Lab assay of single mutants.
Amino acid sequence: NKASVVANQLIPINTALTLIMMKAEVVTPMGIPAEEIPKLVGMQVNRAVPLGTTLMPDMVKNYE
Results as ranks from 00 to 15, higher is better:
residue 64 E to N: 09
residue 56 M to P: 01
residue 8 N to Y: 15
residue 46 N to Q: 12
residue 52 G to S: 07
residue 62 N to L: 11
residue 13 I to R: 10
residue 34 A to T: 06
residue 62 N to I: 03
residue 49 V to A: 03
residue 36 E to D: 11
residue 22 M to L: 10
residue 17 L to C: 02
residue 59 M to P: 01
residue 10 L to N: 06
residue 4 S to L: 01
residue 15 T to N: 06
residue 18 T to K: 10
residue 46 N to R: 13
residue 30 M to D: 15
residue 64 E to K: 15
residue 54 T to W: 02
residue 3 A to S: 13
residue 15 T to V: 10
residue 44 Q to P: 13
residue 12 P to D: 07
residue 14 N to P: 02
residue 9 Q to D: 10
residue 55 L to C: 02
residue 28 T to R: 02
residue 50 P to Y: 15
residue 34 A to W: 12
residue 8 N to P: 03
residue 2 K to D: 15
residue 51 L to F: 14
residue 56 M to S: 09
residue 51 L to C: 11
residue 43 M to L: 09
residue 22 M to Q: 02
residue 5 V to K: 00
residue 8 N to A: 10
residue 47 R to F: 13
residue 8 N to S: 09
residue 34 A to N: 05
residue 42 G to M: 08
residue 49 V to N: 01
residue 62 N to W: 04
residue 17 L to W: 01
residue 64 E to V: 14
residue 45 V to R: 01
residue 58 D to R: 09
residue 64 E to D: 12
residue 8 N to D: 10
residue 16 A to S: 08
residue 23 K to Q: 03
residue 4 S to W: 02
residue 56 M to T: 11
residue 51 L to A: 05
residue 11 I to N: 00
residue 31 G to D: 00
residue 53 T to I: 11
residue 39 K to E: 03
residue 58 D to A: 11
residue 29 P to S: 08
residue 40 L to Q: 01
residue 48 A to V: 11
residue 4 S to D: 00
residue 4 S to M: 03
residue 43 M to I: 04
residue 48 A to H: 11
residue 9 Q to G: 09
residue 3 A to V: 09
residue 15 T to Q: 05
residue 38 P to Y: 15
residue 64 E to H: 13
residue 26 V to L: 09
residue 24 A to K: 05
residue 29 P to M: 11
residue 62 N to F: 06
residue 36 E to Q: 12
residue 16 A to Y: 10
residue 6 V to Q: 13
residue 56 M to H: 07
residue 36 E to I: 08
residue 27 V to A: 12
residue 8 N to H: 13
residue 46 N to G: 10
residue 44 Q to C: 12
residue 34 A to Q: 06
residue 54 T to K: 04
residue 58 D to P: 07
residue 20 I to M: 13
residue 21 M to W: 04
residue 59 M to V: 10
residue 41 V to N: 03
residue 41 V to I: 11
residue 11 I to E: 00
residue 28 T to D: 14
residue 44 Q to R: 13
residue 61 K to W: 14
residue 53 T to E: 07
residue 19 L to A: 05
residue 33 P to N: 07
residue 45 V to H: 00
residue 61 K to T: 11
residue 12 P to F: 09
residue 29 P to G: 12
residue 43 M to T: 05
residue 48 A to P: 04
residue 2 K to A: 15
residue 42 G to K: 10
residue 44 Q to M: 12
residue 12 P to L: 13
residue 49 V to K: 01
residue 40 L to C: 06
residue 46 N to H: 12
residue 63 Y to F: 06
residue 14 N to A: 13
residue 31 G to M: 06
residue 38 P to I: 08
residue 42 G to L: 10
residue 5 V to E: 00
residue 23 K to N: 03
residue 41 V to S: 08
residue 19 L to C: 13
residue 30 M to S: 06
residue 44 Q to L: 13
residue 12 P to I: 13
residue 1 N to Q: 13
residue 29 P to F: 12
residue 63 Y to T: 03
residue 11 I to F: 01
residue 62 N to Q: 09
residue 58 D to N: 10
residue 1 N to P: 15
residue 52 G to D: 11
residue 4 S to T: 09
residue 45 V to N: 04
residue 51 L to P: 06
residue 3 A to L: 12
residue 4 S to P: 00
residue 62 N to K: 13
residue 7 A to C: 05
residue 40 L to G: 01
residue 19 L to W: 12
residue 47 R to N: 15
residue 21 M to L: 11
residue 9 Q to Y: 14
residue 59 M to Y: 08
residue 11 I to Y: 01
residue 54 T to F: 02
residue 22 M to Y: 01
residue 16 A to Q: 05
residue 59 M to C: 06
residue 39 K to D: 03
residue 26 V to F: 08
residue 41 V to T: 08
residue 18 T to M: 05
residue 37 I to Y: 02
residue 64 E to T: 14
residue 1 N to S: 13
residue 16 A to M: 09
residue 12 P to E: 14
residue 14 N to L: 08
residue 34 A to F: 15
residue 28 T to G: 07
residue 64 E to I: 14
residue 33 P to Y: 07
residue 35 E to Q: 05
residue 36 E to H: 03
residue 47 R to W: 07
residue 49 V to Y: 02
residue 23 K to R: 15
residue 10 L to R: 11
residue 19 L to P: 03
residue 32 I to N: 00
residue 47 R to I: 05
residue 7 A to L: 03
residue 31 G to E: 02
residue 7 A to T: 12
residue 47 R to Q: 03
residue 20 I to E: 04
residue 64 E to F: 07
residue 15 T to E: 09
residue 49 V to G: 01
residue 27 V to L: 04
residue 7 A to K: 01
residue 5 V to A: 15
residue 29 P to R: 03
residue 43 M to V: 08
residue 32 I to R: 01
residue 52 G to E: 06
residue 25 E to C: 13
residue 49 V to C: 07
residue 35 E to L: 06
residue 27 V to Y: 05
residue 61 K to S: 12
residue 14 N to D: 08
residue 6 V to H: 06
residue 42 G to V: 02
residue 60 V to C: 04
